[in-house]
């Protein structure tokens, strides 16, 4: 009780400071933000819309009989590599702002290294995946088609880098991407076969659903590791092609923006 009264008394004495700090956070959080307080409104609305899309529209078909924990984790394992790459990558340029305005550095190294750093999380998380696969070994088919998993992961890294370079550059101007990127990832989670499997997607929606390269990669990863099945080739090749084109565009955009960072930061 004494501690609490002390706390209250101290805080009361510093109430002006607290007020100033809150006001500072309030102002700086949305500084150079594009949407500003829109995030607070937009996020729940978007989440509701995506959940509706994921569960009511897309997910109509049957589920495979695999243990849900294994299915979820395997999907998340691949998806998180993308998500953490995007989240760290988006702030990679802004976070090095002090450096960029003072030293000529190869700026393109920042998004790339952020994406590569996310591989650490991936590797550590693999331990749990291996554990689960051993635990549910009766549901896991071991075979040669496992080689497609690293190929899916590589394609996904290419896509991640393409996305990250543009987000990292844009974040220099639109600082709210710092908050936007994690939200974006959260929403994407439902548009990628993580909490459900591709066969569960309503038949008519398939064609459109698998145009999303990320969905293809996650699907391929899980098919290879759990079912020992090759990728859905046409979609897989398309996903790779899309990723490479995105990377090419992204590199051009980043090269255009690179020399302007110091003027904006």
């Amino acid at each position: 009780m004494v501690t609490l009264t002390h706390y209250v008394r101290d805080i009361w004495r510093h109430r002006d400071l607290v007020r100033s700090l809150v006001w500072r956070d309030f102002c700086t959080r949305y500084k150079q933000a594009v949407l500003g307080f829109g995030w607070a409104v937009l996020y729940p609305i978007a989440l509701a819309a995506i959940l509706w899309l994921a569960f009511e529209v897309l997910q109509q078909g049957p589920t495979t009989g695999k243990p849900r924990l294994l299915v979820y984790y395997c999907g998340l394992h691949a998806f998180n590599l993308f998500a953490s790459g995007v989240i760290y990558g988006t702030i990679s340029v802004v976070a090095n702002g002090g450096l960029l305005t003072r030293v000529r550095v190869p700026t393109e190294a920042f998004p790339l290294s952020a994406v590569l750093s996310s591989l650490f999380d991936y590797v550590f998380a693999s331990a749990a995946l291996v554990g689960l696969m051993v635990w549910y070994r009766s549901h896991v088919v071991v075979g040669l088609n496992w080689v497609w998993a690293p190929l899916a992961i590589t394609g996904q890294l290419v896509l991640t880098l393409a996305v990250v370079q543009v987000l990292a550059a844009a974040c220099v101007i639109a600082r709210d991407l710092r908050y936007g990127a994690p939200i974006l990832c959260q929403l994407l989670l439902f548009l990628v076969p993580v909490i459900y499997e591709v066969p569960a997607v309503a038949r008519g929606a398939w064609r459109w659903y698998l145009l999303n390269p990320l969905a293809v990669y996650v699907d391929c990863y899980r098919r290879a590791l759990l079912d020992n099945m090759p990728p859905r080739w046409s979609y897989f090749l398309l996903a790779w092609a899309v990723s490479l084109v995105c990377l090419w565009i992204s590199c051009r955009l980043f090269a255009n923006a690179r020399n302007k960072f110091a003027d904006v930061l």
Partner: peptide, 21 residues
């Protein structure tokens, strides 16, 4: 340097950023 870009629309600033220098 632009004196103040806070008045510009976000789209304009982003287009400006990604345009070839």
């Amino acid at each position: 340097y632009p004196r103040d870009i806070s008045g510009w629309s976000a789209v304009r600033r982003l287009v400006e950023l990604f345009r070839p220098p």
